[in-house]
Amino acid sequence: KFSDLFEKMVPMAVQQAMTIYNQRKSDFVNRLVGTMREATNLCNGVLASLNLPAALEDLSGDSIPQSIAEKARSIVQQGGLQSIEQLIKDLPELLTRNREILDESLKMLDEEETTDNDLRAKFNQRWNRTPSGDLYKPLRAEGANFRSILDKAVQADQVVKERYNTHCEMIALLCKPENELSAAIPSANPTKTLQGSEVVNMLRSQITKLDEIKKERETLEGEVKAVTFDMSVSFLTALARDGAINEEQLSSTQLEQLYGAYNQRVQASLRTQEELLGQVQTSHQEFSNLKQSNAESNQREEVLKKLASAHDSYVEISNNLREGTKFYNDLTEILLKFQNKCSDIVFARKTERDELLKELQQS
């Protein structure tokens, strides 16, 4: 049942190259995924601002357009306003827990250092071990880094809270039962006469194509994230062959091979979307001209646009909260490891101190 404990051990040069490679890879993937998501958000934003597709579905002028009803169902299914309210309520506690672990850890170092300094003041040259302050520099630097990370997290929490405050009213409306939601949307003239007209058909087809592009991107995101490759083999080979690792060159070549094609597809998707959105703008202009707008239909349109945006905001806030919760939980694990490092070194220093004291007393 022998298992090689040192199976994963590699030369230092390979270890360092792998760290940099992994950073490059995750930067690349994050940028690619970020680009795709930004494009989808842009698309959703443009459509919402044009009241699409709701305007095309709004036959009677007083019932809820299908796409809005679907958006409402979708966020109710995801837990509605309550689920994001709960996550927001939990954030401060998560922050506090992390702060406490960090504060405890640094306090341990401070206390041991104080004792060490007191003993050095008392015994002078006879207390000849390295001062704790010097030994603790790297740990304190790590601690300072954690503090700045927590400060950034606090700012992120604030952004989420503000987003929530801005949109919660409309989100709440979208979560209401159908009859209440319908009553809250002003009535207007029906646009029945426009159904079947060419511009409506064109808009429908353009919007369908945009939906397809968005779906493709979801698939693409999954594929990009699923790419695996063991770069350590390449680095080991290079080291054995050349005696050194040209990390930058090897990494960029490999990353291009792994992700180059995906990058092309993403760029193509952006170009197609831009074209389609342009077409939508043109068609929508025509559509607006045909529609007979008055104060009521404008009011109705405004509310429908706000409801569509509320859905997008809900999705964004949910994602932010999921990210924030995961961030704090991941950070707790990391801080607990840091706390262990601090308590281990303090324990070792205490043991050493006790031995030194014994020696001094005996001498």
Binding site: Q15, N22, V159, G324, I334
Partner: peptide, 16 residues
């Protein structure tokens, strides 16, 4: 992404 990345910190640094 809104929150800072913890990627660097997840890697166990070599203790010298």
């Amino acid at each position: 992404s809104l929150y800072p990345s913890l990627e660097d910190l997840k890697v166990d640094k070599v203790i010298r």
